[in-house]
């Protein structure tokens, strides 16, 4: 992949554009529906963004590294199942949460091992794992929902620290740690180098397998954290849990300016991408568009952004002349 643009400049422009799109969407929906621009609805949108934000942070790293994980929603599902079962068994909610996060980490290790050591392209490997994990959720649930879970975890998550909800703190911490790792440590450089070209990075002395493996582990762990908030909010595990998360996350991340071809990462863009996506989904529902259309909108956004980028990528190449 050839990236001829100076880093920074375009990313900022992209983020401003996304911010403008969010504002525009809010304005339009506020006009179209009396229920949209209310404090309650704002909380709903933010609440609905928590799992997607956490998973999208992981997906940003995966795409920037040249990978992807289409099974990530089911990873969250399995972690949620672990938490649910433990809560039913009256296990302490903080222990159940920890177990869920570790389950996410373990599944991230499995995915990473299959991709890295099986030398299978990430898209194919995770598509295969998606089937396996879906079946695992199905078998674990035995055809029935896990519902009416005890509210212990929900109560635990209601804690506020100096008035700030715990979800906000966890997301801010995750964002901060990942931002530091990407911008201030060798890990970020190595990850972007692998995303640009695995072979070149290897020749430059980067431990490419370690980078790939650990990125899947980070992503799995974040899915485990997402499962904690999922159970805290919904207190049930249904058969189709997390089934739209992978597509939503990929759309939000690509919308945010992270390259689907790897080598470029924008975390702030990801956050804005998630918010825009959730605003659109919420607003469309409120103006009476059937929820079936949500996936259509997500898919259309993804394809639209990619085709515009494909076009501008070609233009960039043209203007850069014969630099390669």
């Amino acid at each position: 992949m050839i990236n001829v643009l100076p880093r920074g400049a375009v990313v900022e422009k992209r983020e401003l554009l996304l911010l403008a799109a969010c504002v525009l969407a809010i304005a339009l929906f506020a006009i179209a529906s009396p229920f949209f621009a209310t404090a309650d609805n704002a909380v709903t949108i933010l609440r609905n963004s928590v799992e997607l934000l956490l998973i999208s942070l992981g997906m940003s790293l995966l795409l920037a590294m040249g990978g992807v994980d289409v099974s990530i929603g089911t990873v969250m599902g399995l972690a949620a199942f672990v938490i649910g079962r433990l809560l039913t068994a009256a296990v302490d909610p903080s222990l159940a949460a920890l177990a869920g996060i570790l389950a996410g980490t373990a599944l991230g290790m499995v995915t990473g091992a299959v991709v890295v050591f099986g030398r299978i392209p990430a898209i194919v490997a995770t598509l295969g794992l998606l089937g396996v994990y879906k079946a695992a959720i199905y078998l674990a649930l035995g055809g029935a929902w896990l519902s009416g879970l005890p509210p212990t975890l929900t109560e635990m998550l209601q804690v506020r620290i100096v008035g700030v909800p715990i979800a906000v703190i966890v997301i801010a911490l995750s964002y901060g740690v990942i931002w530091l790792a990407m911008r201030r440590t060798p890990f970020g450089l190595h990850l972007l180098a692998v995303g640009n070209s695995e072979e070149k990075a290897r020749l430059q002395g980067v431990n490419t397998k370690l980078i790939q493996f650990s990125t899947f582990v980070i992503s799995g762990t974040l899915a485990g954290v997402a499962a904690v908030f999922y159970i805290g909010t919904y207190r049930n595990v249904e058969m189709t849990i997390g089934s739209t998360l992978a597509l939503d996350a990929i759309a939000a991340v690509v919308l945010g300016g992270t390259s689907i071809l790897g080598g470029k990462c924008s975390l702030l863009g990801t956050v804005l991408g998630v918010l825009l996506l959730r605003i659109l989904q919420n607003g469309l529902l409120l103006v009476g568009v059937p929820s079936l259309w949500q996936a259509v909108v997500t898919g259309a956004l993804l394809i639209g952004v990619l085709s515009i980028e494909g076009l501008s990528g070609r233009l960039q190449l043209k203007f850069a002349g014969a630099t390669q």
Binding site: M1, L189, G205
Partner: peptide, 15 residues
């Protein structure tokens, strides 16, 4: 063997 998406300084020191 250079990473085109990274800076000159980053490439010189990569690894």
């Amino acid at each position: 063997a250079l990473s085109e998406n990274l800076s000159i300084a980053e490439n010189v020191f990569l690894g």
